[in-house]
Design a protein around this nucleic acid. Structure first.
Lengths: 212, 212, 212, 212
DNA sequence: TATGAATGAGAATTCATTCAT
DNA sequence: GATGAATGAATTCTCATTCAT
């Protein structure tokens, strides 16, 4: 009863505490890694805090020191994912290979492959009841915008609108990266994908505009 | 149709008991409906047996009468889904509208929309660690085969191989049914989808073969 | 996340479930007894659910079957206390000894002694931050009203207002029942208390009106 | 509470460490203040060491520097309360207003009001299982003795025994200070209380001796 | 068969206390 | 001394499953 009073007075929602020491920073990092791996493997509901702590080589108390709630851990993971996406795109933009459609296609496929586990984890954290999930939309916009910029870098004569449309298609195609490996002959398919992409940068799709 | 391989070793594997009377059949049906709804809403792990029984207006004991295990309930649900898919396809095949590509396209989109919730529930039951999940593959094959047949019915000059390929693409396109509604202007997009489908039945995609 | 959605949709506040079978009724009774004893001994915060279940000879699951929350258990306890108070007062009113001031005094002292543990437990459940606690006021009013009636029964010439005032004083004096035993010579003091009470029914206190 | 008993056997009982410097003294003071406030608000069990440190603007490590145990902190708080009571009484004794019964009554009421929070905190630290708690008795005796002296100072013709008796009654009346404010018209009641007190110093209660 | 109750392992979370820097 | 991190036993609460009537 008294706890609730405190809460009503200050509405002390739990927040992930930021580490202040180097040791803490490392701990948080490894906890996030462990969580990402387990969420990706088993989904959000099936992943226990105990398992996360164990996998990270931390005590359960240590985990709760930084993430007072499983949901908060999930949120942190999604933020980190967004940050990683941004960083990877920045790195890609600085890579000179990206000046050609083929190079850009290869770079994007590589980027997606590198984000595979983290993306799976992040998807496991989406509330399936809420398709307009704010964070999800945010990452989508981030990618669309940045990819459009990359396309204009690789194919300078593209105007802004066209680039935006092609970015949407590109993103859809890129999602296939995560479905192909389940199939036979992934290498061949990956080649095909790179090919489609490279073409998509310069030539509009014939079937009309695809959104989402 | 489905054979349970596991049955070989164990002495007394629990099996979903079949109801003896009409009343029992109805109860089982409503239990499955409740389970489908809840699995679709909250996922497998987050759905409790108590909640299922409650939603079905049954007691927990009654639920366990028919489904001695949560997993067994999930299995029954997947089987029922497969059965429903089969029935829906049969019904579609008998619908004379399907003699034209446009009619078939419309029919398939309708079919997918009708299976929406059940499909979501079934997907929630897939072990994400096992992408080769037997049951999943079985349903996929069922759909591919049946859709190929429908295509040949609507476009009689198609040969078997071509029909098979187009069925694969068709299936991919059909999955979009479940993504579009989240977007703006669903009606417009649904039209577009029907259009793409109708074309896919007669004309191969230019960008190469898509698998899975 | 899905759980919260459910909650937001139906605001499913947990409620103490009422037993539907005889066995359950007994269980609930013994759980409440155990809880009363432990709350009285150790206070609300220091009493664990495990300890309550153990003392009642029930499993922890059984406890939670009926009281999904410790707070709910506390609430049920307070309700039961109020009910017991009411019943005890009714019984006292029907006791013919109460037709005289002395008899009434003795009866009230007896009544208080019988409620001792339960009262201690109930007091341990009051949120000390909230002096206007609704339940507490309710019991106080119940007692004031009923005692006033008893006084008019014992001393018929008393008018309603006077009886009400004397009931307030009576209640204050009665609280001493629970402090005296800690002192030396409880029997002597109990006699004195009975004496004061009997006098309080007929004669106003000289020092002015005491409220609360 | 049983755990704390075990400690009696151990070799090195932790003791509250005394601060060496002025800065330390201030820190200890603010820690005690924070603890008093929180114990008073939420009770002993519900108050966490972390919360205390936070409220005092200190780190948890710092808190443990001075109070190696929560119990030790509680003990220190009770000692400080006793000390404050003594100081307040000394100050009161030196106040010339106390030469008259009315002045003394006012002074005592004032004194009680000033100790309100600290008293609430101290009460929250009493083990409810042990009504003969040593510390509690000690404070009670301190107050009885000092108040008796004050009474003889205000009403010089009182003999020692009578003064002692009246001190007991005075103390009981003074406890009302902490109950009255919850009622309607606190100012009026406070006046009445002062009045009763002033009379109690010179005139014996008619109803007999009240103890405790 | 139907139904409510019983069970207990397991999960999330808390918190006093200890450590290392 | 001061500070943040580490620890893990203890606590609340959940839920699949089994029992008894």
């Amino acid at each position: 009863m008294s706890k609730q009073n405190q809460a009503s007075a200050a509405a002390e929602l739990p927040v992930a505490r930021a580490p202040r020491r180097e040791r803490g920073r490392q701990r948080v990092e490894s906890l996030l890694d462990a969580a990402a791996a387990l969420f990706a493997e088993n989904g959000f509901e099936a992943t226990t805090m105990t398992a996360i702590a164990q996998r990270a080589g931390a005590s359960i108390g240590s985990l709760y020191q930084f993430f007072p709630t499983r949901q908060l851990l999930a949120d942190a993971l999604r933020s980190r994912f967004e940050q990683h996406v941004g960083e990877a795109l920045t790195r890609l933009a600085e890579d000179c290979r990206c000046r050609t459609p083929e190079g850009l296609a290869a770079g994007l496929v590589e980027l997606m492959k590198g984000l595979r586990e983290e993306r799976t984890a992040a998807l496991a954290l989406v509330d399936p009841n809420d398709p307009r999930d704010a964070h999800r939309l945010q990452i989508r916009n981030l990618m669309r915008t940045r990819i459009a910029a990359l396309i204009r870098q690789a194919v300078p004569e593209t105007d802004a609108d066209t680039a935006a449309q092609r970015a949407v298609l590109t993103l859809h195609l890129l999602k296939l990266v995560h479905q192909l490996p389940h199939e036979e002959a992934p290498a061949v398919l990956e080649d095909a994908l790179r090919d489609w992409l490279a073409r998509a940068f310069v030539q509009p799709p014939q079937t009309g505009r695809l959104r989402d």
